[in-house]
């Protein structure tokens, strides 16, 4: 009986290619399962077979909710990403209005609960409905879905700006100097040399942000949006059966695990050139 000092010896020793391929397949299979949950109703057939009436009745609502959750997260991550770019740039100015504004923005959205922000936008907009109607924006703020989308985008923009700013800072100074030596102007150097490297550094934190957003998106249910959480609460309230929460838990875990694995896949693909051959 000998105990090894590192029982969790790295599994990569078994051969990189074999490893990677199974991992890729699992990621793709999980993504396919998630897609099938939204697009088809095979779980209902299983529910029928098991004789679970509540599941048969409410699964379609949950599946619809899952679709809403995916939409909310995907759109707000992209919109937030676009907004984060100017925010991150403004953070690099040492002083001035833009820099202070960006700092305040990031501080506010990272320092307050997403739920409070959602209430602020949703009920705040309701209070100013007449003004908003006057300037033609009420059509947007009228819908809880759009209010939530706006709040989520603003929120994730603050987090993404911090990620991006950190990643830009992490690009070695030598890269700037080399670009300068090659005669590239600062903006060109930034877009063509610095930003792509920063994105690679930022990939992992971006992945975490997507997962945090999926979890955070559950607060949409509090302002009448039937996302996965909203549909779950509806079903639980109507059936008085707590098992509904457990189905939702399984779906959320599946979703987060899928994102994690798919993200690993993307990261490996994008950093292929950086990997050393043994």
């Amino acid at each position: 009986m000998t105990t090894t000092p590192h029982p969790e010896a790295p599994p990569t020793a078994s051969g990189f290619f074999g490893e990677a391929r199974t991992g890729d397949l699992v990621a793709l299979a999980l993504a396919a399962v998630i897609a099938s949950l939204v697009l088809s109703d095979w779980p209902v057939a299983i529910g029928t077979w098991l004789g679970n009436d509540i599941f048969v009745r409410y699964w379609p609502r949950l599946a619809e909710g899952l679709g809403v959750t995916l939409q909310l997260v995907a759109i707000s991550i992209v919109l937030g990403g676009l907004l984060s770019l100017p925010l991150a740039l403004a953070r690099f100015r040492n002083r001035g209005f833009a820099s202070t504004l960006a700092y305040g923005y990031v501080y506010f959205f990272r320092g307050t609960p997403l739920l409070a922000q959602t209430f602020l936008v949703y009920y705040g907009a309701g209070e100013f409905s007449d003004t908003l109607r006057g300037i033609g924006l009420w059509g947007f703020f009228k819908e809880a879905y759009w209010c939530v989308l706006l709040t989520f985008s603003l929120n994730t923009a603050a987090y993404q700006a911090e990620i991006l700013a950190g990643a830009i800072r992490a690009v070695p100074r030598g890269q700037w100097e080399a670009a300068h030596a090659l005669g590239l102007s600062k903006p060109v150097a930034f877009v063509k040399i610095i930003l792509p490297q920063a994105f690679v550094t930022a990939l992992r934190p971006y992945g975490n942000e997507v997962i945090l957003m999926i979890k955070g998106s559950a607060v949409a249910s509090v302002v009448t949006v039937f996302d996965l959480m909203g549909a779950t609460r509806l079903a639980a309230n109507r059936t008085f059966d707590e098992q509904v929460y457990l189905w939702a838990a399984v779906v959320y875990l599946l979703l987060v695990e899928t994102i994690r694995r798919v993200w690993d896949l993307i990261e490996r693909g994008l950093t292929r050139h950086l990997r050393r051959r043994a």
């Binding site: 997962i211 999926i214 979890k215 955070g216 998106s217 559950a218 607060v219 249910s221 959480m229 779950t232 609460r233 639980a236 707590e242 929460y245 457990l246 939702a248 838990a249 959320y252 875990l253 987060v256 695990e257």
Partner: peptide, 18 residues
């Protein structure tokens, strides 16, 4: 994996009701 993957709101409702 479970408690980092679940939405906090869902964890809360599961603990509270379940």
């Amino acid at each position: 994996t479970v408690f980092r993957g679940l939405p906090e709101l869902l964890t809360l409702l599961i603990i509270y009701y379940g």
